[in-house]
C-alpha cells in the first residue's frame, strides 16, 4: 500500500509520519511537496502536523490554497482515504473537507503530552482494527486544538456516528463534547488532533497509533 505524506512549508511532523509508515508499518511512502498536484498514485493521503505558513492568518488558512489541495479535494471526493493530524486537521477544516473549526486551547497554553483517546466508532477505514470502546495512548502537541461546532452540527456528528475519537477522562483543550477526531459524511476523511504517527515505535512509549494505520491497510484489502 502506498501512502503520500504532503509537505507544506512549515510542516514538522512529516518525517515522523514517513518513519512510522515506512519503518513501523512497513508500507511504501512518498513525500509530496505542496506545490505539486501529482499525488503519485497513492492509496492514502496524509496531511501532517506542524505550522504550515507559520500559522499566519489562522492555522491552516493559507495551506488550503496550495496547489496540492486541489488534488486532495478530488482524491477525497472519489472516496479514497485522507487523514489530517494536528495542523493537517486544521487544514482539512479550513479547506471545507471537514465541518467545524479549531480554536485556541481553553487554557491558552500549548499542550504537549500523552493523552488517552477513546475510539468512538470502528466504522471507518481508520478505526476498523480497533476494538469498540478501546482506549489508545497518543501524544497531543498543539496550541489550537479546541474543537468548536454549533450545537446542531455536534448533534449531527453524533447521530451519524462521525466522531472518531474522544479524549478519555480529562478534556485537555476544551473541545466540544471532548471531540478529538471527526469523519466526513463519506467516512473517508479523518481529522484528529492527537498524533498516532508518534505512537508507532516502541521507543516512543506507545504503539497504539499503529492500529489506526493498520486499519487503513486492512480497509484496502478487498473483502471476498
Amino acid at each position: 500500500m502506498k501512502f503520500g505524506v504532503v509537505i507544506f512549508p512549515g510542516s514538522n511532523c512529516d518525517h515522523d509520519a514517513v518513519y512510522a509508515l515506512s519503518r513501523n508499518l512497513s508500507q511504501e511512502v512518498v513525500e509530496i511537496w505542496h506545490r505539486s498536484e501529482d499525488l503519485c498514485g497513492v492509496d492514502v493521503v496524509f496531511l501532517p502536523g506542524g505550522f504550515s505558513y507559520g500559522d499566519y492568518l489562522r492555522c491552516g488558512a493559507i495551506a488550503r490554497f496550495s496547489p496540492v489541495m486541489r488534488s486532495v479535494k478530488r482524491f477525497a471526493a472519489s472516496g479514497r482515504p485522507v487523514m489530517g493530524v494536528c495542523n493537517g486537521f486544521q487544514i482539512l477544516l479550513e479547506a471545507g473537507l471537514l465541518p467545524g473549526a479549531l480554536m485556541r486551547n481553553r487554557n491558552l497554553r500549548f499542550i504537549c503530552k500523552t493523552v488517552r483517546l477513546s475510539v468512538a466508532t470502528i466504522d471507518s477505514p481508520f478505526t476498523n482494527r480497533c476494538r469498540p470502546g478501546s482506549v489508545l495512548a497518543a501524544p497531543i502537541a498543539h496550541g489550537e486544538g479546541c474543537y468548536f461546532a454549533g450545537g446542531d452540527l455536534l448533534d449531527r456528528l453524533e447521530s451519524e456516528d462521525r466522531v472518531a475519537f474522544r479524549y478519555a477522562g480529562e478534556n485537555p483543550n476544551g473541545s466540544a463534547r471532548s471531540i478529538a477526531g471527526i469523519l466526513n459524511e463519506g467516512r473517508n476523511v479523518l481529522g484528529m488532533m492527537p498524533h498516532p504517527e508518534r505512537a508507532c515505535d516502541p521507543a516512543m512509549g506507545s504503539t497504539d497509533g499503529l492500529t489506526v494505520f493498520q486499519s487503513l491497510v486492512a480497509a484496502a484489502v478487498p473483502v471476498l
Binding site: 492568518l57 489562522r58 488558512a61 477544516l93 479550513e94 465541518p99 467545524g100 473549526a101 480554536m103 468548536f148
Partner: peptide, 8 residues
C-alpha cells in the same frame, strides 16, 4: 472567503 472563518 479568506480573512475570517465564518464558523467562528
Amino acid at each position: 472567503d479568506v480573512l475570517a472563518n465564518p464558523v467562528i
